[in-house]
């Protein structure tokens, strides 16, 4: 029984770490700008498609799992970071001073635009990542099945999250981000370039989302232009579970959601999984309205 539970735990953490990576993009933007960036899921989806194109139509994949993967992930993350800055410039920056509703509508517009663009570029049929046999290698450790790709997803996401956490907590840039999140006006008075911080957030978030996108593509192999929506719903839930605006909260929330889904599907009934998950979410929000690691959401009076 214990082995089974451990294996289910690995399953849950694998899904959960992807949710965490995507949730980080939501929560960082919300923390700094109080904006729910609905376009974030589409960046994840575009990252997945871009990785697919690089793998299929260039010879980077022939470098092998190690270097090939690293180069592809870096290229995709870079491209999505650029796109992130562009979106911020075009869709959000002009609305910086115009209340909270306008940027949300603008975000929805960007989301629809990107989704349709992906459909026109890559078509409305399902696409599949090529089989990369090396990634399908699997082990059985003490009765627990784990594939290389699961290990990569877990390892890469946990390391990226630790890196991000250290940067936010230990560096001056991190301190500036935290200051901007607490109060933009005061941060500006302290000499922090708030616009630069916002641009930086729009580099990190999409880059992390893109890494998640490539890993999801490699693991599940199946791509569709609507996939961003499914994942952003889950990631958004994870961000709220952890406490939206709170960076460690998004990490914990994603893992927690993954484990809850695993418990629901693995021990109760897969058909009732979402009911189980959302009942717990509602209960959690009643008991702790600010989420698991709830931050004192700075009320603007």
């Amino acid at each position: 029984m214990l082995e089974l539970f451990l294996e289910q735990l690995v399953n849950g953490l694998t899904v959960g770490s992807v949710y965490s990576l995507v949730a980080l993009g939501y929560t960082m933007v919300y923390g700094v700008m109080r904006l729910i960036n609905f376009a974030h899921g589409e960046l994840f989806m575009l990252g997945s498609y871009l990785g697919f194109t690089l793998l299929v139509s260039t010879s980077i994949g022939e470098l092998g799992v190690g270097w090939g993967l690293i180069i592809i992930v870096l290229m995709v993350a870079g491209a999505m970071a650029l796109l992130g800055i562009l979106i911020e410039r075009v869709a959000y920056a002009p609305l910086r001073k115009s209340g909270r509703l306008a940027p949300v509508v603008s975000a929805l517009g960007v989301s629809i635009f990107l989704q349709n663009a992906a459909m026109l570029i890559w078509g409305s049929r399902y696409r599949a990542y090529p089989v990369w046999a090396a990634l399908d290698r699997r082990w059985e450790i003490g009765g627990v099945h784990i594939t290389l790709m699961q290990a990569i997803i877990l390892g890469v996401s946990i390391n990226l999250m630790l890196l991000l956490y250290c940067m936010i907590q230990r560096t001056t840039l991190g301190a500036a981000i935290r200051a901007t999140a607490i109060d933009q006006e005061t941060a500006r008075l302290m000499g922090i370039d708030v616009n630069a911080i916002i641009r930086f957030i729009f580099i990190i978030g999409p880059a992390l989302g893109a890494v998640a996108g490539v890993m999801v593509g490699l693991y599940y192999r199946q791509l569709h232009f609507t996939m961003g929506w499914t994942y952003s719903l889950k990631a958004f839930t994870a961000a709220i579970m952890g406490g939206i605006g709170n960076i460690p909260g998004a990490m914990v929330g994603g893992m927690f959601l993954g484990i809850l889904e695993m418990l629901g599907a693995g021990y109760i009934s897969a058909a009732w999984k979402d009911v189980f998950v959302f009942v717990i979410l509602i209960a959690l929000l009643i008991l702790r309205p600010t989420g698991l690691l709830g931050e004192r959401v700075a009320e603007k009076v």
């Binding site: 089974l4 294996e7 289910q8 399953n11 849950g12 694998t14 899904v15 999801v216 599940y220 199946q222 609507t226 996939m227 499914t230 889904e261 695993m262 629901g264 599907a265 693995g266 021990y267 009934s269 897969a270 058909a271 999984k273 979402d274």
Partner: peptide, 20 residues
């Protein structure tokens, strides 16, 4: 006997339970 949710991608938990 169980059901999955269309549109999702990870079915490992239900399949691990099925394996038992």
């Amino acid at each position: 006997y169980d059901a999955i949710t269309p549109g999702e991608k990870d079915f490992s938990p239900i399949l691990t339970r099925m394996r038992t």
